[in-house]
Design a binder for these strands. Structure first.
Length: 243
DNA sequence: TCATTAACTGAGG
DNA sequence: CCTCAGTTAATGA
């Protein structure tokens, strides 16, 4: 892996709304990053941990989750290349949830001091990271609405479209298909529905000609139909609408 | 191990 | 009475 592979997705995502000038781009490209390979299901940081670095997803997927005392896990968010899922740990010292590798993946650990210096001395980058954090919060708000107010078929449709649009920004979709390397168990944990019901919903969506999922690859057959079912409006992702 | 399906159940509209 | 979704259990890939 070359140095530009490491920050490629991050650069794409940061520049969704505004170009970075050469100097700031160079600052991002020359951040010291320690690259680590992780196996699926390997914890990155756990609730209660004090971390001294932030995790940049380079390849593969990562989830944030919380597990209740009775053992039920809620997946809070799914992270893809270019995301920094624990950016908040820069200022919140103790983790309030777990960060776990969903698939085998490559992550880059960026020391807090490095990021703090970037934020202190480069207003442009500070604004982009601030923006990332706000969009992250916007996505959480949408997830709350999704889990609390939509029937499960709409939840699934909404989730798939969100992943589709987020993956598109970093160039990880191909035509109408996207990788969502989650088992039906994972989908259930993300959407708050039982595994058997996940299976029923997938069958229903397939039957309606909306989408299909096979071994972690989703093919969208009817994007408009999915948007209607999922009441999906991509505004909350705050992407460049031209993309 | 993961995916699929049927059958049954209860909540709630 | 109908729809939605959880549980259980059996079975297939």
């Amino acid at each position: 892996m070359t140095r530009s592979d490491i920050t490629e997705a991050l650069e794409k995502k940061l520049q969704v709304t505004a170009r970075l000038d050469d100097e700031n781009l160079h600052a991002i490209r020359s951040m010291p990053i320690s690259v680590k390979q992780l196996a699926a299901n390997q914890p990155i940081v756990r609730e209660g941990d004090r971390s001294s670095s932030c995790c940049l997803c380079i390849e593969g997927y990562v989830v944030r989750s919380k597990t209740t005392p009775s053992g039920h896990r809620q997946i809070l968010s799914v992270h893809i290349p270019g995301d920094i899922p624990d950016l908040h740990s820069l200022y919140l010292n103790v983790m309030d949830h777990d960060l776990v590798a969903l698939t085998d993946c490559t992550v880059g650990l960026i020391a807090h001091e490095v990021l703090r210096d970037l934020v202190r001395y480069r207003a442009n980058i500070a604004e982009l990271l601030w923006r990332e954090t706000l969009v992250d919060a916007a996505i959480f708000r949408e997830w709350i609405v999704n889990l609390g107010q939509r029937p499960s078929s709409s939840r699934m449709a909404h989730f798939v479209l969100e992943m589709f649009h987020r993956l598109k920004v970093v160039g990880k979709t191909s035509g109408n298909s996207l990788k969502v390397p989650m088992t039906q168990q994972h989908l259930g944990e993300a959407l708050g529905i039982s595994i058997v019901h996940v299976n029923r919903i997938l069958k229903e969506l397939r039957g309606q000609g909306l989408m299909e999922m096979h071994r972690g690859v989703i093919t969208i057959h009817d994007e408009r139909g999915l948007e209607q079912l999922g009441e999906f409006d991509r505004l909350y992702l705050h992407q460049n609408p031209a993309l």
